[in-house]
């Protein structure tokens, strides 16, 4: 018997009516790049990871919708949001995309043995619990491969705290890696960057494809409020 997947949103006050009605088979990938330059190698890595994941999703018959959040363009808004509860429209739109993502690709440059302060500040603005169980692929860039454990020592705990499904594969791109190709010098003995990117993209796609699409709301619409009936609150539930 054919099981038709249900894309209905959960019952909640002001809940969105359905997932994207035109393409219910779509999955929304949100790419958050913490690169500070333009051009930026973090953005470059993020784009390549997104392309790899999108290709793998397409191969499974799923329509990938990719949204890129470039934090350098939001730097002032993020700083202002730290000291004031108001959010600029651009920042709120970015946070809304992240909250509704079916999969997240998060990439930061390595600064002083960790992610950049801007990258951390952005995730500080994401409310606890809103991206619980969302698959996350981590990526980082740095000057030399000696920083490559940053993904595991700094980024992974952050995304564990956010209760996301952090994929075991994380992609670190040192400056040298951009010069490496399949069939390059055997003496380097590392897997070329593009090969690692393709594998990680496929890894993310395989998890995203197996999860139901998350409910989406009309763009700009605030998050629905969920109500616990008051007699339950009174009983301490």
């Amino acid at each position: 018997m054919d099981e038709t997947p249900s894309f209905d949103a959960p019952e909640a006050f002001g809940a969105p009516e359905s997932t994207d009605p035109f393409t219910p088979q779509a999955r929304h990938l949100v790419v958050v790049s913490g690169g500070l330059g333009d051009p930026s190698s973090s953005r470059q890595l993020a784009d390549r990871l997104a392309a790899a994941a999108a290709d793998a999703l397409s191969a499974e018959g799923i329509v990938p919708e990719v949204h890129v959040v470039e934090l350098r363009l939001l730097a002032t808004d993020i700083a202002e949001a730290m000291v004031n509860p108001s959010r600029s429209e651009a920042l709120q739109a970015a946070l809304d995309e992240v909250e509704q993502a079916d999969g997240i690709i998060a990439v930061s440059p390595t600064f002083k043995a960790s992610y950049s302060g801007l990258f951390k500040s952005f995730w500080d603005l994401v409310e606890d619990g809103v991206i619980r169980d969302v698959p996350v692929l981590l990526g980082a860039t740095g000057g030399t491969p000696r920083h490559s454990l940053m993904i595991d020592t700094a980024m992974r705990p952050l995304f564990s705290y956010l209760r996301t499904k952090v994929l075991s594969s994380g992609i670190f791109a040192a400056s040298d890696d951009w010069g490496e190709v399949e069939g390059g010098q055997a003496s380097t003995r590392t897997t070329p960057l593009q090969t690692r990117i393709a594998a990680a993209g496929a890894d993310l796609a395989s998890v995203v494809a197996r999860l139901a699409a998350r409910p989406r709301r009309a763009s700009g619409a605030p998050k629905p409020l969920e109500v616990t009936p008051f007699d339950q609150l009174l009983r301490g539930e």
Binding site: N84, P85, P222, L225, V227, T228, F230, L233
Partner: peptide
């Protein structure tokens, strides 16, 4: 939302101090 619900439950009033918040 719990506090809006509380105000409604008792038939009391609801005050939104919107001075730092976006209208949404």
């Amino acid at each position: 939302a719990e506090i809006a619900e509380q105000a409604a439950y008792y038939g009391d009033g609801f005050f939104h101090n919107n001075i730092f918040w976006n209208k949404e």
